[in-house]
Amino acid sequence: MSVAMQDTAIRTGRAVRVLIYLFLLLFALFYLLPLYVMLVNSVKPLSEITGGGMMALPEVWTIEPWLKAWSTAQIGVEPTGLKPYFWNSISMVVPAVAISTILGALNGYVLTKWRFRYDTILFGLMLFACFIPFQIVLIPMAAVLGFLGLAGTASGLVLVHVVYGIGFSTLYFRNYYAVFPTELVRAAQIDGASFFKIFWRILLPSSGPIAVVCIIWQFTNIWNDFLFGASFASGDGAPMTVALNNLVQSSTGVKEYNVHFAGAILAALPTLLVYIVAGRYFVRGLMAGSVKG
């Protein structure tokens, strides 16, 4: 991951090392426990769970809960499963991530290579926007989305996520471009490259890593969002997280825990896959978003 192994000067005794390993393994189990619970219980019949077998491996293996969660579970009015909501999320996430990343890259470029008066203040304003409790904008946003006719639509959520996502994407690109040699930009200026040519030909080809970091971060955040989804798109246009919550909280009928677990995994799968494939970049984004500046 982002932090490289380094030769530490600290030496520890054998007994201490055994204790350290025990401690680390214990917590590894703690972190894995919910994942294990979700996985094993999503492939066993409901009766095994209610019969006290939550921690046991399935006696009878079944993919029925997965199929049910995906396509037939009762979530809204119709028994549609999570499938339509999954596609809602996809159609919200893809444009929102693309737009916020592109805007962030351009903003980062302007803020580092074309500095002007008050640029730090402007950036500060954008950055603070990342950390506000979004409750503070829910009321006017609901009114504006209603006014624009975007309430409950994917486009409405795209707008919301772009607006509240550009702070972070700008942060990433700004910090990345801040250490990009300004002399290259000046050389390109002398060579006669225009504002956009410089961005396209000089900066962008070197921006691969930070673009990956930014895309992963935005993807994870937007996919996992619940507050905006629940506030502005609770019906048929709801994203995956809202649908999962509706599935789990629904008070009608028998609680099908195995279906709930399968649904939870379905909701977690995209971000989890990204984490497994590109965890290094995810952690970099996490760190850049926390240790700012």
Binding site: P181, E183, L184, R186, A188, I202, P205
Partner: peptide, 10 residues
């Protein structure tokens, strides 16, 4: 212009 860091496009 020739720059101190050469400023070659990487």
């Amino acid at each position: 212009m020739v720059f101190q860091s050469y400023a070659l496009y990487p």
